[in-house]
Amino acid sequence: MVSLELLKDHETVRSAPVTEAEALVDVRRLNLWYGKKQALYDISVRFPRNQITAIIGPSGCGKSTLLRSLNRMNDLVPGVRVEGEVLYEGVNIYDPRVDPVAVRRQIGMVFQKPNPFPKTIFENVAFGLRLMGFKGSELEDRVVEALKRAALWNEVQDRFRKESGLRLSGGQQQRLCIARAIAVEPPLLLMDEPTSALDPIATQAIEDLITGLKQHYTVVIVTHNMQQAARVSDRTLFMHLGVLVEEGPTELIFTKPKHPYTEAYITGRFG
């Protein structure tokens, strides 16, 4: 077992760093507290465009917290305090002039457990579009398009207007949530362990879907399933105790981890 001392200065080990030009999101020295408890320590990392970045690490290490900092979902938690910057297309989304609601409209999110609204499949996908003012045939087209991209269209096309989203199976529900998130065509899509509540077959379908999304979207995905990170992602971040320990191309992280902690985690010695 490696000593905790190694994490003390919060220095991240980086391989093949992402350049500023490639980055869609640039996190700079991000610190976050829930009340008095610090959950993120001095995180700096760039997420490249049209690539899939995975965040891995033992449970409670701050993966979800980091992810939710990227679209300011953490603002909804009472007592949260954030320091540092998150630049999205060069704009700091924590700038006081920025409206968190506007941020969330441009950044999609998929949650750990499928959480469709108790509405019809159609209304689920249309929700974000309606918030943005879409109506009529354009709305319909985009709903159908999103269902297709989420690989759900074939299964629901004959009933998507009438059937409640809650009536779908777990895997279908999660794809519905993905369709709902991508219907507004967010350049960035955040996913928090999107398959952890699903069976292997449904997981397979979602993973295929995520790989395909790369063409259109930049994806950040949290997972504690390392095979999944290895299968779908281009880059991987390894976190521990609120610190970003190591980041780099997925292949390198999984084959030649530089930090002893990363190696310990990858090889299953803790976590």
Partner: peptide, 18 residues
């Protein structure tokens, strides 16, 4: 009012009415 989906991030500004 359709906000263009491709609008630059400057569109993070607040919609005062809402």
């Amino acid at each position: 009012m359709n906000r263009s989906l491709e609008s630059p991030p400057q569109a993070f500004s607040t919609d005062p009415w809402k």
